[in-house]
């Protein structure tokens, strides 16, 4: 009787279409995020993240329509991120049917955005997403923006501590060093962040094989997130959960029958 660790799939969405290849068995690639969201829900995913990678004004309306259609057909929690810079952006997304929003660069630029959203809707709706990597700072990790291309002189641990004080209800910790390597999550950084993190912590970046997920949870993560390894079909949600069960990690798991 304990809270299960979550397995999360992240979809990059641009102009209402999934970008990057998503490859589900028996599924024609039409690029509709709702279709993939349904497939992931059927596969036992615990949460979905839609990341709006274009996040222009016109694109925002398309994203809201995607969220509406998802909420109508997919009965698992949905978090939406990308280009959220005001309380009214959040209101529109929540009304459309998502459960949480994630903020990244806009919160670095304006940290008070976190407290504004938390005061209006509660901490549970706001996930702070950060792209961190090794660097010259007190903790040895710094914050980057623009997908890791721009390095700031902002210490990762300091920023996380400040964001939690402001009301962030969850930390999505993406390792720029590990991202794309497929050599596993950045366990050292996860352990360091866990020490100061009093809200749920999502590990992101670096998953390459089934056996990469359990160590991230043992290092302190409450949830593990992956994108391309799930989309490519290289790893299934079922395989990850089965491995977590073998490692005696609590998960929501019912074996896939087909």
């Amino acid at each position: 009787m304990t809270l299960s660790k979550r397995v999360i799939a992240c979809l990059d969405v641009k102009n209402g279409k999934v970008v990057k290849g998503v490859n589900f068995e028996n599924l024609v690639q039409i690029g509709d995020p709702v279709v993939f969201a349904e497939a992931y829900a059927g596969a036992g995913v615990d949460e979905l993240v839609f990341l709006d990678v274009a996040a222009s004004v016109e694109n925002r309306k398309t994203m809201i329509e995607v969220v509406e259609r998802t909420a109508e057909n997919v009965f698992v929690p949905l978090c939406v991120g990308g280009g959220i810079s005001s309380v009214s952006d959040v209101l529109l997304l929540l009304k459309a049917g998502c459960d949480k929003v994630s903020v990244n660069t806009s919160a670095v630029k304006n940290p008070l955005l976190i407290s504004q959203i938390a005061e209006k809707f509660g901490s549970q709706v706001i996930t702070l997403s950060i792209d961190a990597k090794k660097g010259n700072s007190e903790s040895g990790y710094v914050i980057t923006t623009h997908g890791g291309n721009k390095t700031l002189e902002l210490d990762a641990i300091k920023w996380i501590t400040q964001a939690i004080e402001l009301g962030a209800g969850e930390i999505l910790l993406n390792s720029i060093d590990a991202d794309g390597t497929k050599h596993g999550f950045d366990l050292e950084m996860l352990r360091l962040v866990r020490e100061v993190c009093t809200v749920p912590l999502i590990a992101s970046g670096g998953a390459g094989q089934v056996s990469d997920f359990a160590p991230a949870i043992m290092a302190g993560a409450d949830a593990v997130l992956a994108a391309s390894v799930f989309h490519s079909g290289q790893i299934t949600i079922d395989e990850v959960k089965k491995d977590l069960v073998l490692n005696k990690i609590p998960v929501r798991y019912s074996p896939q029958t087909n």
């Binding site: 009787m1 299960s4 979550r6």
Partner: peptide, 8 residues
């Protein structure tokens, strides 16, 4: 650790 977030 709060919020209590996820499946239980």
């Amino acid at each position: 650790v709060l919020p209590h977030m996820g499946f239980n």
